[in-house]
């Protein structure tokens, strides 16, 4: 496919929608839908001024801290649970229960226990994001091929080396799938925590603008969140391509 064709496919529908939106707002006057030009104007004025430091960066750092902690905890705990059978049997029912609780309902509890601060928001993000990663890690670790395991044994790998050279790489495709799921969850929980209990952040201001009937401003928050979500996903895919290059190659070969 030529580059031109690719760009066409990529931008076709968005450009069409943008055109329809421009035409609509120039003919009809719906108070709740701002013109694209106005929205873009507000978007840059609001988020790329002092708010970038006072609100966007705090939101992003909470998001990344929550994600980072979830990844570390999810992989570490998941690997141990997947690796040691009796620990798995002991904890799996509990995990299934905790996982079934909608995390947003924990906001009141966390507010009481931790208070209105960054720790509370990060805790909330971790509480939801850790599960896809943890459970995928467990699944990946428990489904390692028997011949590979025997190979690791006869090679004489120690427990630590086996973790490093066999278990984690073998589980990495599933771990990455778990992380991918948790990206979307993290963004949702970041916004929700800011809408409920915050004095700064993208979520806080988006709901604040809505309360003050600042419609274009409200939309600009939504646009920013969308952009953050897409960026997160693009960065993740870049990493995944590098980490799982062997896996993609292997799968391609098997499908030949």
């Amino acid at each position: 496919m030529t580059l031109l064709k690719k760009t066409g496919y990529f931008l076709g529908i968005p450009l069409l929608l943008l055109a329809a939106w421009t035409v609509y707002t120039s003919t009809a006057t719906n108070f709740f839908i701002p013109e694209p030009a106005k929205l873009m104007d507000r978007f840059f004025k609001i988020w790329f001024s002092e708010r970038f430091v006072s609100d966007v960066l705090p939101s992003l750092s909470r998001l990344l801290a929550g994600l980072g902690l979830s990844i570390v905890i999810g992989i570490a705990v998941g690997a141990v649970i997947g690796y040691v059978r009796w620990i798995r049997w002991l904890f799996e029912p509990l995990f299934e229960f905790i996982r079934a609780i909608p995390s947003t309902i924990l906001i009141p509890v966390l507010l009481l226990l931790i208070g209105i601060n960054d720790s509370m928001k990060i805790t909330l993000i971790v509480f939801s994001c850790v599960w896809p990663i943890l459970l995928n890690t467990v699944a990946g670790v428990t489904s390692i091929d028997e011949v590979l395991q025997n190979t690791a044994k006869v090679i004489g790998l120690t427990k630590f080396d086996r973790m490093r050279y066999l278990v984690l790489p073998a589980a990495s495709p599933q771990i990455m799938a778990g992380i991918r799921q948790s990206l979307a969850v993290a963004l949702i929980l970041m916004v929700v925590s800011e809408m409920f209990a915050s004095t700064d952040g993208i979520g806080h201001w988006t709901i604040n603008f809505q309360n003050r009937v600042a419609i274009a401003e409200m939309w600009s928050g939504i646009l920013l969140l969308g952009i953050i979500g897409v960026t997160l996903s693009v960065v993740f895919q870049w990493f995944q391509k590098r980490i799982l290059a062997w896996y993609e190659g292997l799968k391609e070969k098997e499908n030949d």
Binding site: V147, L148, N150, T151, K153, I155, G156, Y165, P169, W246
Partner: peptide, 22 residues
């Protein structure tokens, strides 16, 4: 008593005895 240093094994399933990420 367990995998011994000094013993090497070649398995039948070559496709599953090499680490594909290496």
């Amino acid at each position: 008593n367990g995998p011994a240093k000094g013993m090497a094994v070649v398995f039948q399933e070559y496709g599953r005895s090499l680490f594909p990420w290496m």
